Amino acid sequence: MQAALRFLDLLGALNRSVAAVGLWLAMALVALMTGIVLTGVFFRYVLNDSITWVEDVALIMMVSTAFIVAPHAYRTGANVAIEMVTAVLPAMLLRVLRVVINMLILWLIWRYFLESLALVDRGWGIRVNTVPIPWAWPYMILPVAFAAMVLVAVELIGRDLWALIFRSDAADLPHVAPIEPE
């Protein structure tokens, strides 16, 4: 029983660390992307000489940023939710519903993870239009993000299963509002 709780805590610490690194990387990418876009605008409208690679690099950075922060958003519940439905559910039913939903999400993420590996493989044969690299390099963020999201899904499912089995909220994440007893 305590071993399972320690496992969830270790997995949570790993997920929290991965999310923190992702947030810092995303902030750096947004700052870098902003600088690149502003430089591109300056060159185009002030110097009347466009930099050809600005759009492709900015697009790669923007998409990468979204995938880098996805594990953090999933773990913290920063996704879109309809809470008026879940607010009226009994506590145990809500936990069962969260387990079912997170299991479906886990299945989808796993499928996307496998597809992303195939995408990276195909990307080695395709070049970015204006940058001399294969698309596989920018695509590599996909399996990394999906693998991190698999770990988050396992943690969230484990925490709710713990609460259902042991009738305890000891494994709940602090940012998730506690479920009131029935």
Rank of each mutant, 00 (worst) to 15 (best):
Y74R: 13
N48T: 06
L93A: 14
V99N: 01
W53F: 15
V54D: 05
M62H: 10
R75M: 09
L93R: 11
A78L: 08
T76E: 08
V80W: 07
M62V: 07
M61I: 08
M92Y: 09
H72R: 13
V80K: 03
M92F: 04
S64H: 07
F43H: 10
V85S: 01
T65R: 02
L59N: 14
L47M: 15
R75F: 07
I60W: 01
I82E: 05
N48H: 14
A91H: 01
A78I: 00
E55D: 15
D49I: 09
V96T: 03
F67R: 06
L104W: 11
I101M: 07
M103A: 15
F42R: 06
V80P: 04
F67E: 03
R98H: 08
E55P: 03
L59K: 08
L89V: 07
N48E: 10
I68M: 12
I60A: 06
V100H: 05
V99W: 04
M92L: 13
T86C: 02
P71Q: 02
F67D: 00
T86R: 10
V57P: 05
L104H: 10
Y74D: 08
P90Y: 00
I51Q: 08
I60H: 00
V96C: 04
V88S: 08
A66K: 01
R75T: 05
N79W: 06
M61L: 15
Y45N: 04
M92K: 09
V57D: 00
V96R: 01
M92D: 09
R98V: 00
M92Q: 13
I101G: 06
V69Y: 02
I60L: 01
D49Y: 11
M61V: 04
Y74E: 13
P90M: 01
F43C: 03
L89S: 03
L93M: 14
I51S: 04
R75V: 03
M84E: 09
I60Q: 02
V54Q: 07
A81W: 09
D56G: 08
M84A: 10
L97D: 05
F67T: 01
L47T: 06
N79A: 07
M103F: 13
Y45L: 09
N79L: 14
M84S: 15
A73N: 14
V54C: 08
N79V: 12
A58C: 02
D49C: 09
L104A: 15
W53H: 02
V100M: 08
A66I: 06
S64F: 13
M61N: 04
M62E: 01
A87C: 01
Y74H: 12
A66H: 12
M84R: 13
R75C: 06
L94C: 05
L47P: 01
G77K: 04
Y74P: 02
W53L: 12
L104F: 10
E55I: 04
M84K: 10
N79P: 03
G77V: 11
L94P: 00
R95W: 00
L104C: 15
V46K: 12
R95N: 06
L89W: 11
L89K: 12
N102G: 07
L97R: 08
R95P: 02
V80S: 03
H72F: 15
V80Q: 02
V96Y: 04
H72C: 07
T86M: 10
S50G: 10
L104M: 15
V85N: 05
N79Q: 11
V99K: 02
V80T: 02
V96W: 09
T52L: 12
E55H: 14
F43R: 07
V57L: 09
